[in-house]
C-alpha cells in the first residue's frame, strides 16, 4: 500500500504540488473579479469538504451537521475581532481552535453513546440546528442581524484590496490540507480510520481504540471545516446564523467529497470544481432561475452514487484503466 522511501514520498506529494502550482496561476490568466470571487468560493467549499472527508470519507462517519464547525469558525473569528478587538490572525487561529473544541465535544458525546450510521447523521444535524437557533436568538452574536466586521483594508488586518491575495491564501489552505490528508493516508492513524470505516467491530476486535481514533478524526475534521468558516467571515466581513450554521453548509461540505471521490485526498477539490462548474453552466443556460443549480447538484448526487460509487475520481481512474487495457491488446 504505502511505498516507502524517497520515491514513495515523491509519488505521494508531487501531484499535490503540481495541481497547487497550476491553480496558483489562475489570477495571472484573469483579473476579472467575478472569476476570482467564484474561485475563492469554490476553494472555501473545497476546504469545508476536505474537513468532512477526513471523518466521513476515511472514517465512514457521515456527519450531516458540519455547519456546526463552519459556523463556529466564522462566528469565532468575527466575534473575537468585533467584540474583543483581537488581531485578525490571532482570531483566525483561535476560531479554528474553537471549531476543533466543538468537534471534540460533539464527537465525545455521540461516540461515547455509540451512535453510528443514521443516528450519527441525525445527532450532528441536530447539533448544527441548535447552534443556528441560539446564534439567531442570542444578542451576543448579534441575533438575526448577524455580526459585521469593520472594513479596514490592511495586510495586518487580514484584509486585502486584491481578491488574488485571498485566492492564494485559500489555495494555500487547501494545499496544506491536501498534504495533511495525504500524510494521514500514509499514517497508522489513517489505516485505523479506514479499518473503522470498513468494519468497526472487526477494528475493535483487532485492538484499535475506535473511540479515540474517531474522536481524533472528528476534532481534526472540525478544525479544517472551521478554517473554511473563519476564512469566509474574513473574506465577506459578515456572518449571520443562516449563512454560518445553515443546513446548506452541511450539505455542500458533504456533497463535494461524495461527488469527487470519498476517502481520496483530491476528492473534495475535484467535486467542488465539478459542482461549481455545473452550477455556473446551468446558470448561463437557464438565465439564473433560482434553485436550478442546486437541483442539478441533487440529480448529480443520485447519478454519481448510481453509476460511479467511487466518485468522479474513481470514474476517471476506471476510464483510464479501460483505455490502457484496450491500448495494450
Amino acid at each position: 500500500m504505502t511505498v516507502s522511501g524517497a520515491r514513495g514520498m515523491f509519488s505521494a506529494y508531487a501531484p499535490i504540488l503540481v495541481v497547487a502550482a497550476l491553480l496558483a496561476l489562475t489570477p495571472l490568466a484573469t483579473s476579472a473579479n467575478t472569476v476570482l470571487n467564484a474561485m475563492v468560493l469554490a476553494l472555501l467549499v473545497a476546504l469545508a469538504g476536505q474537513g468532512w472527508n477526513i471523518l466521513g470519507g476515511y472514517g465512514g462517519q457521515f456527519s450531516f451537521g458540519h455547519a456546526a464547525f463552519f459556523g463556529t469558525g466564522a462566528y469565532g473569528t468575527a466575534l473575537l475581532q468585533a467584540r474583543y478587538g483581537l488581531n485578525a490572525y490571532v482570531a483566525f487561529a483561535a476560531a479554528i481552535g474553537a471549531g476543533a473544541a466543538v468537534g471534540a465535544a460533539i464527537g465525545f458525546l455521540s461516540f461515547r453513546s455509540g451512535l453510528r450510521g443514521s443516528y450519527f447523521a441525525l445527532v450532528t444535524l441536530a447539533f448544527a440546528e441548535v447552534f443556528r437557533i441560539v446564534a439567531n436568538a442570542s444578542p451576543f452574536t448579534g441575533g438575526a442581524a448577524g455580526t459585521l466586521l469593520k472594513l479596514d483594508v490592511a495586510p495586518g488586518n487580514f484584509q486585502f484590496a486584491s481578491r488574488a491575495i485571498f485566492f492564494w491564501i485559500a489555495l494555500a489552505l487547501v494545499t496544506l490540507v491536501l498534504i495533511l490528508t495525504r500524510a494521514i493516508e500514509r499514517s497508522r492513524f489513517g489505516a485505523y480510520l479506514v479499518a473503522i470505516r470498513e468494519n468497526e467491530s472487526a477494528a475493535q476486535a483487532l485492538g484499535i481504540d475506535t473511540f479515540k481514533v474517531k474522536l481524533q478524526a472528528i476534532t481534526l475534521s472540525a478544525a479544517v471545516t472551521a478554517a473554511a468558516g473563519a476564512f469566509y467571515a474574513q473574506y465577506f466581513l459578515y456572518v449571520n446564523a443562516d449563512i454560518a450554521y445553515g443546513a446548506a453548509v452541511s450539505v455542500e461540505a458533504l456533497l463535494a467529497p461524495i461527488i469527487g471521490g470519498l476517502g481520496t485526498a483530491f476528492g473534495p477539490l475535484i467535486g467542488t470544481l465539478a459542482l461549481h462548474g455545473l452550477a455556473e453552466g446551468a446558470k448561463a443556460l437557464t438565465g439564473r432561475i433560482p434553485g436550478i443549480d442546486v437541483a442539478l447538484y441533487g440529480a448529480l448526487v443520485v447519478l454519481v452514487i448510481a453509476f460511479a460509487p467511487k466518485g468522479l475520481r474513481g470514474l476517471a481512474a476506471r476510464l483510464g484503466r479501460g483505455l490502457s487495457t484496450r491500448w495494450a491488446s
Binding site: F62, F64, G117, A121, V251, I292, Y297, G298, V301, V302
Partner: peptide, 13 residues
Amino acid sequence: LLVTLGLSILIEN
C-alpha cells in the same frame, strides 16, 4: 442515505 438526500435536494430546488 445519500440518494434520499440527493432526491430531497433535487425535489426542493
